[in-house]
Design a binder for these strands. Structure first.
Lengths: 237, 237
DNA sequence: CGGTATTTGTTCGTATGTATT
DNA sequence: AAATACATACGAACAAATACC
């Protein structure tokens, strides 16, 4: 008989299937190691070996004294020409949310003015916000709007919780992403506080420029995604 | 007294340093578990735990009956970069480079087999590499090729410095990026070593799947970009 | 708030299987 | 074929973090 597969591998596969079939939902606590050992009729070490393999794959995470929990898979966030935060999250089966942190008018920096195609020293509306998925913070953002081009944008942003809706109210029926730059950074204290992560945690920073139908810039800003909670997906077509 | 670090972690660190300082060169056989257990004055299981941690980082690989060997270092030649990597760097006025770290055949993990549309336990060719810009490391990558589908891929990769050329030699005239996922992580010790950055430095991880003209997967892999040195740009169209 | 029970993490011990040398 | 060496598995005990009352 081919008794090749080790016990721990078989147990890992069983647990993997249980998770895949929703028997243990994300966030759920798995049975204790002792309970699993009894269930499978093996030593606790064998269960630990299986759990270790699952943890390596990022499927579960263990907390000493607490238990083993099914890892909440990162939110899949499609990046395309048309990026609509709310649509993206709804499509991913999550409840979108947004908290406005600040809204102020200030002078654009040189690069900001250049990106927005404004004259140096032009005034812009700076909006800082926190994006949520199912109530959990997933991204921090700073958006800049050319106040000369969109004089009503401030009130529109106060009226609408959605940037898309606010831009529509300001006369921008449609907008597309003209440019996106991505890099990785580590969270500072302020970012960690807002995103409810640890300082030094990995962040995915997206710098983007959105333009209206006529190609005129309407928004420029940065978004810091919590690396542990978000996966950006690039799907062609 | 701070007795925080476990024995196995201290042993792993010692071995890691031994390897980093060339005391054990790539390909060298480490002392047997029993010998290491005696050297560190611990149980063999504790040594195994340390070796397991090193194996997870890809620093050593163990062969039952033979011993534990210093890994020939991972290499890459991965996804988005492959075709556009060289072009992008040349366009940016930089000299592209690549160091093949290792090329070996191994068994695919469950997720890897699934992504490549292979049966569980299938064999794949794993290529680890380091991508350079003006001689400075900017990305680490791991590429997997379905060896059953591309029996000549190993020699093709040895013959050609370019993955695109190697795939062409293997009968894949053209391939496209079917899926790309991006997220942020922090560098572990091994990654930091290769990329010449600090442990905990931000990394941009790209996971991608490339398929041939018929839609059959031909390459799957990850690329870790040094966040401080790379900015990915997404310009549609 | 504090003490206690629970649960995972670490370490040693022992035995057997299996692949390599 | 035999010795060597890693892989798997069970058992026991304590430490450390967490959860619960």
């Amino acid at each position: 008989m081919s008794k090749k597969t080790p016990l721990w591998a078989a147990i890992a596969r069983t647990l993997r299937e249980d998770i895949a079939q929703g028997r243990y939902a994300p966030g759920d606590k798995l049975p204790t190691e002792a309970a699993l050992a009894t269930r499978f009729g093996v030593n606790r070490h064998t269960v630990r070996h299986a759990l270790s393999a699952l943890a390596e794959d990022g499927l579960v995470r263990t907390r000493r004294g607490a238990g083993a929990f099914v890892a909440a898979r990162p939110t899949e966030y499609p990046l395309g020409k048309r990026v609509r935060f709310n649509e993206n999250l709804l499509r991913a089966g999550r409840r979108p949310g947004r908290r406005e942190l600040s809204l102020e008018t200030r002078t654009a920096s040189d690069t900001e003015a250049q990106m927005l195609d404004l004259s140096p020293g032009a005034r812009v509306l700076a909006s800082h916000g926190l994006s949520l998925a199912d109530g959990l913070p997933i991204a921090l953002s700073e958006s800049l709007f050319p106040i000369t081009r969109l004089p009503e944008i401030e009130r529109a942003l106060r009226d609408n919780p959605s940037v898309t809706a606010a831009l529509q109210q300001s006369g921008i029926a449609d907008y597309t992403r003209a440019e996106t730059r991505l890099t990785a950074e580590v969270a500072n204290a302020t970012q960690a506080l807002h995103l409810q992560i640890h300082e030094g945690a990995p962040l995915l920073r997206s710098t983007s420029l959105n333009v209206g139908p006529d190609g005129v810039p309407v928004e420029y800003g940065h978004t810091w995604f919590a690396g542990d909670r978000v996966t950006l997906t690039l799907t062609e077509g």
